[in-house]
């Protein structure tokens, strides 16, 4: 199906959606699935889209949440998570091991999406808290609170993992 409005949206923002999905999922195939889902959703939500926020911020949110849903789906199958974690190249610096990346992928699959979303904007996209607040349509204080919640939950999960493996 061709739709000129979505087609134009895709030409302008498709690379951005693919880029962000690719960073989060580490897979071209999964990232392309996200592109399809995001623009399918834009097609369904056309009226909301036109009268809502700027397309870029709207697409950032949909892309992040769609990618996280995929990551969570994948995360429920440990073999796939292992493959996902192993697929990325070794970091050039920093010393993170494949095991740590696997652990991180699993932690991300276990923390509620709203918290992961903010953490990714902050730590991966390097957005300011003000920018995150704009994307989410919430206050900077809420962003700060949720970043703290993410850290607390992630640390607790890591502690539980260590305890379970000890």
């Amino acid at each position: 199906m061709r739709d000129e409005w979505v087609d134009g949206l895709y030409r302008l923002h498709g690379a951005m959606v693919f880029r962000r999905a690719r960073v989060l999922l580490g897979s071209d195939d999964l990232a392309w699935d996200v592109v399809q889902e995001v623009f399918s959703r834009a097609l369904r939500s056309r009226s909301e889209f036109r009268h809502g926020a700027a397309p870029t911020t709207w697409l950032y949110r949909i892309t992040t949440n769609t990618a996280f849903n995929k990551l969570r789906d994948e995360g429920r199958q440990r073999g796939k998570v292992a493959a996902l974690a192993a697929a990325g190249p070794e970091p050039a610096a920093g010393g993170e091991t494949p095991e740590l990346r696997l652990l991180l992928a699993e932690v991300l699959a276990r923390i509620p999406v709203p918290l992961c979303e903010i953490a990714v904007y902050y730590h991966v996209d390097r957005m300011s808290q003000d920018e995150i607040a704009t994307v989410l349509g919430t206050s900077r204080k809420t962003v700060g609170n949720r970043l703290n919640q993410f850290h607390a939950l992630a640390q607790a999960l890591l502690d539980l993992e260590k305890e379970a493996s000890a």
Binding site: G26, G88, E90, P91, G94, R101, L104, A119, N148, H151
Partner: peptide, 27 residues
């Protein structure tokens, strides 16, 4: 892939002190 980049950033985040600003809130 850039998964390692994202992972490295988040691992660093987990190791870093919690962001300043609002107080720590539990779930």
């Amino acid at each position: 892939g850039a998964l390692a980049v994202a992972a490295a950033a988040l691992v660093a985040a987990l190791r870093a002190p919690a962001p300043r600003g609002a107080g720590v809130a539990a779930v």
